[in-house]
Design a binder for these strands. Sequence first.
DNA 1: CCTGTATACTTGAGACGTCAACGATCTTAG
DNA 2: CTAAGATCGTTGACGTCTCAAGTATACAGG
Lengths: 155, 155
Amino acid sequence: MTSQVLSTQEITSTTWLRFLRAHAAVTRELSARLESTHGLTLSDLDVLMQLFHAEGHRLRRVDLARQVLLTASGITRLLDGLEGAGLVEKERCSSDARVTYAVLTESGLETIRSARESHAADIEELFGSRFSLEEKMALDEMLSRLPLAETACQT
Amino acid sequence: MTSQVLSTQEITSTTWLRFLRAHAAVTRELSARLESTHGLTLSDLDVLMQLFHAEGHRLRRVDLARQVLLTASGITRLLDGLEGAGLVEKERCSSDARVTYAVLTESGLETIRSARESHAADIEELFGSRFSLEEKMALDEMLSRLPLAETACQT
DNA sequence: CCTGTATACTTGAGACGTCAACGATCTTAG
DNA sequence: CTAAGATCGTTGACGTCTCAAGTATACAGG
């Protein structure tokens, strides 16, 4: 309830802190739900969704890393898990022996189809429902000004 | 550059995704800088700052956990590190033998004094400078509507 | 007083992600 | 053709955080 005047720096700090807290809180709840209902991590689903939107449901690991904002090694390990679960398969590239594609399996597709909706509903409940359409658009635009906003942000 | 009409659900999803990406990107850079200049984690500094603002630079571990949005065990381990570095000390509570306070040491205070400014400048550069004062206030207000926004968000 | 329940904190096991180093392959320039 | 350098991917070592379980203390009701 502080109704005093705040300096630019102060407001930046409190807003950033709130940003961090909001992320931690929403993310934690979202992650718990996703884990319990589908046995997936937020990152898992993120990767699956990227593959889902990609041509032929297939993506190079490097590109995946760039889009999802994980390290190359992070992607390797994440995909290890998804492969183990049978949701994704490796596919070697004929024209460049260095690259390995990650391809969605049929099982992966089904997992997405089943997880997508409930997860979207969770996001809507914990995040989207808090804002009006205009607010969300404004928020989206503001966030897009931050570093690395170039990253693909498809639904 | 999609200028088509989007449903509420769609906009929620893309905004949420952008929120995630923005967090990952800014956080990663911020964390790298803080690590290299002061050998601290974002969470470390967060905890130190909470202590700094607390009465007597002292806080119960439970309260710390609530404010910083870590698990109780997370706090224990984080404080282990800070104690090892001599930035924080334990202090038993006389009236309740269950609680242990974390208290800032002189060295901890100095660390904060030196880290605070550069970190604030980093936040300003990577985050705050992207927005006008009004935008930041609007953003702050919006974020405060999210779950667990009750959490203390002092600078 | 003693028993049951709640609270404070710690600990072991394990998930997730990073960095640094490495092997393999491609590309370019002499 | 070959050597230098870039790119793709994996691996080992490690840090951080969580969950579940356990210990210790506090407190309230019978």
